[in-house]
Design a protein around this nucleic acid. Structure first.
Lengths: 232, 232
DNA sequence: CAGTGGTCTAGACCACTGG
DNA sequence: CAGTGGTCTAGACCACTGG
């Protein structure tokens, strides 16, 4: 059973996803929501507060609560699952699993995963779509020692990231960010024209006992940006 | 007058900063805090909830609330001056100042710098070379209010970054990273062939009183990568 | 079992915004 | 002024953890 404040959040995010509520629109006031959902104002307020914290709504005292205008952007300082990120922007998330198999590690993969060359490792390749547009081609290699049931998962409903963080909690990550030209295969998988610049993030994720996975995340340059904020 | 929940937050963070409470320590329960501070449990709870959201505390139902051993990190984008970065790699650093002038802010520049359209702002454009190869084209706009003598500097010997951090100490920064195609002018300034993917970092730097500068840093995809490491 | 956090209520007073 | 969000109370019942 879902909590009532969570139901209200879900109702609101659904309205935002389906564009019933658009950026800039005013959402019902706390009192109105409380009445509509038959809850106390504190409960309605909690739903709004969490959505404000998530950046989906913006509140102004005396004025009301409004749908925030979200530019697609992800933070470099946190590792969020791509589907959460997209949903948080109020957009629809879909994906397409291209490959899900085990392979024998070649030299590059072995080095990155910290295993012997020839070790059987898991490989998945998934395209992630935001509002129907491909925004990420994820090519991931996983050390079976940390996630023996990885290949049995259904990655249309969950992401590799989400699954792995459950079975092997993240303790560290490192990454390299660069700009590259998409190969022909990549252009096709992302439905972009050839010779398009792409943002490539190569990331290793660690759990307490070692390197869990190594992922190459490729994003069309014109559809994806990474953002960040630093305080000193 | 500070809100009561904020006072409780301040009291707890102060105890953590002064190591009265260390990572892993259990903090007072919601009921205990409510009694100590003479507030309702909901108010004590709010203080804890916000600290949990900020990553400072960790809560487990039935167990209690604990100080997180989350250490603030920002290794990914410590803002280092490009010449320091290059010298640290043991390579030679040179540059070429392309432009150094004042311009009237157009709409984009005005928005990014937080000034009125048409305000006179400073503009510099510099190409940075590592071992003779262009690795960054820096196009920077500066708010004269924070650095009135910016244009009089000799940027062959110091970088804009270094100079600005002296006259207006950095307190914050934000940035957007994306992959783009170099324009013809940019290709020439970076001595790369046309249609090369480039890593574009758009960064605003803040001092205590406002936005000091806005820079567009363009790097040839095949000569520059950004790296980072995260601990959880 | 006693203690913890998780959710929720039905009130209250306040500060702020627009008209 | 009426309406909004911001804070707070003093209760309640629940699910969960350890002993």
């Amino acid at each position: 059973m879902q909590a009532r404040f969570a139901q209200i959040k879900a109702a609101l995010t659904e309205q935002i996803e389906t564009s019933v509520l658009k950026p800039g629109d005013k959402v019902a006031s706390e009192n109105e929501l409380a009445e509509q959902f038959g809850v106390s104002r504190m409960t309605a307020r909690r739903a709004l507060t969490e959505l404000v914290d998530e950046g989906i709504l913006i509140r102004t005292q005396g004025l009301g609560t409004f749908v925030s205008d979200h530019r697609p952007m992800s933070s470099m300082l946190t590792i969020r699952s791509i589907n959460d990120e997209i949903k948080q922007r109020g957009h629809s998330y879909t994906n397409k699993v291209i490959q899900q198999c085990s392979v024998n590690a070649d030299e590059t993969q072995a080095v990155w995963l910290g295993v012997e060359v020839g070790t059987s490792i898991y490989h998945t390749q998934v395209t992630h779509f935001e509002n129907g547009l491909a925004v990420q081609l994820e090519s991931r290699y996983v050390n079976p020692a940390f996630a023996p049931h990885y290949l049995a998962q259904d990655f249309t409903n969950t992401t590799a990231n989400q699954y792995l963080s459950q079975v092997a909690p993240l303790t560290q990550a490192d990454h390299i960010v660069e700009a590259v030209m998409a190969t022909e295969f990549e252009s096709q998988a992302l439905s972009v024209e050839a010779n398009q610049p792409c943002l490539k993030v190569s990331r290793r994720t660690f759990s307490a006992k070692g390197i869990v996975s190594y992922a190459i995340l490729l994003h069309p340059g014109n559809r994806y940006r990474m953002g960040g904020h630093l305080d000193f």
